[in-house]
């Protein structure tokens, strides 16, 4: 058997990086499209790298980017040509194995998270995200959902915002005033 064969049920999902997914002699649904996308993107980046400084000098800022994007483009084209020759995996479909509805829903959640993070602030956005996604995945009662979601959010918030003073977007919550209030309380109690 081909030692590089990764097509068993344990590996084809690509959960381990050292044993990436995919089949060696077959193509998965959408794989060809992905390869074509990579080729086009690489060619575009190669053009963009040429625009940095052209063939000005060996030490020009565009020299290494041009070399790497050229390698990208060649590799992507080779992959595309190879993939195109392989037969499709007969048992898989795009909607079932590559992009099932649940994954699409979560990608949507992440995009929404990104869009709301700045205007709404970290705490409300994260709270909504956690509650909705735990509810959706665990399918347990609201009590459980809220306890798990808000409990873990409080821990994350304390670690990052209070201990590591990461200035997460405050949005609609006056976090800084809130923290200062407790700080005054503590220092007031101490003195």
């Amino acid at each position: 058997m081909d030692p590089d064969f990764r097509g068993d049920s344990d590996h084809h999902d690509g959960t381990s990086d050292a044993t990436p997914g995919g089949y060696t002699e077959q193509r998965r649904p959408g794989e060809l499209g992905f390869a074509i996308f990579l080729s086009v993107a690489s060619l575009f980046l190669l053009y963009s790298a040429y625009g940095i400084s052209g063939f000005e000098a060996l030490s020009a800022p565009g020299a290494v980017p041009m070399a790497t994007t050229l390698v990208m483009a060649v590799a992507a084209l080779v992959v595309t040509a190879r993939t195109a020759r392989f037969p499709l995996v007969p048992t898989e479909t795009l909607g079932k194995d590559i992009l099932p509805p649940l994954v699409l829903v979560f990608i949507g959640f992440l995009i929404l998270f990104g869009l709301l993070l700045k205007p709404l602030g970290f705490v409300p956005t994260a709270a909504i995200f956690l509650v909705v996604s735990v509810k959706l995945l665990a399918r347990k009662g609201w009590g459980y959902t809220f306890a798990v979601a808000l409990g873990s959010l409080v821990i994350i918030w304390i670690v990052f915002r209070v201990i590591f003073t990461v200035l997460l977007p405050a949005g609609i919550l006056p976090e800084a005033e809130f923290i200062q209030f407790f700080r005054n309380l503590v220092s007031g109690g101490a003195s």
């Binding site: 590089d4 044993t19 990436p20 060696t24 390698v71 990208m72 080779v78």
Partner: peptide
Amino acid sequence: LSSGSLVKGIFAGALGIAIGA
């Protein structure tokens, strides 16, 4: 580092260098 297809590994490595730039 790329035990699957070497060409795909080379693509990934070059992509990384480009991201770094």
